[in-house]
């Protein structure tokens, strides 16, 4: 068990690298399989010392549901952006808003910020303070293309995206 840990320090990352290598070559010939295994072993060994320890996933089921929900939201909400972009510029109500964060660690905040950026109507601009230690409150600065009600949007982001992320990590 100990030697396994030594040779494959991060098994999930190794598996991911192996799969990406196969996708890149688009074949499952013996040579590609072999070289994929070599790379999946070598790269984690090389970068192991620089690695930041990230929290593991607690519930993969929620993560899967979250991913599908985000994909669906991207498609649906793009239709609204079509209407906004094609309509007259005067009707837009762009705004900067601050969304207070309950999430603590950097990985889940990164996920939240990326989700907010990909779902139309909002782009996350800044997390501040950037390197807060401990319990200092942080917020996410979000630029909105067409803001109807600030409190409602904050509520929506917190309920729809932040709550499942809290469950996952």
């Amino acid at each position: 068990m100990k030697s396994l840990k030594k040779w494959w320090p991060t098994p999930i990352r190794s598996l991911f690298l192996f799969l990406v290598w196969l996708l890149l070559n688009n074949s499952v010939e013996f040579f590609h399989l072999f070289f994929g295994v070599v790379l999946a072993w070598l790269i984690p060994q090389l970068i192991h010392k620089f690695r930041l320890v990230q929290p593991g996933m607690k519930s993969p089921g929620t993560a899967l549901r979250y991913g599908l929900m985000v994909l669906w939201d991207i498609v649906v909400a793009n239709m609204q952006v079509v209407r906004l972009v094609v309509g007259p510029n005067k009707r837009l109500r762009p705004a900067f808003i601050k969304v207070p964060l309950d999430l603590k660690d950097n990985l889940s905040i990164t996920f939240l910020a990326s989700t907010v950026s990909l779902t139309p109507g909002t782009v996350s601009a800044e997390v501040s303070p950037l390197n807060a230690g401990g319990d200092e409150p942080r917020y996410l600065l979000v630029h909105v293309l067409d803001l109807a009600d600030e409190a409602e949007l904050i509520q929506q982001i917190k309920e729809r995206y932040e709550a499942p992320l809290k469950e996952i990590f």
């Binding site: 972009v85 510029n89 109507g121």
Partner: peptide, 28 residues
């Protein structure tokens, strides 16, 4: 959708609003 992203880039008034087009419509 790719065209829509570029229309947003040309038409919208300032940088922050323009950013919305390319990041989402073009990606979709």
């Amino acid at each position: 959708f790719v065209l829509l992203g570029s229309v947003a880039l040309v038409k919208l008034p300032d940088f922050y609003t323009r950013l919305h087009g390319p990041t989402k419509a073009t990606t979709l």
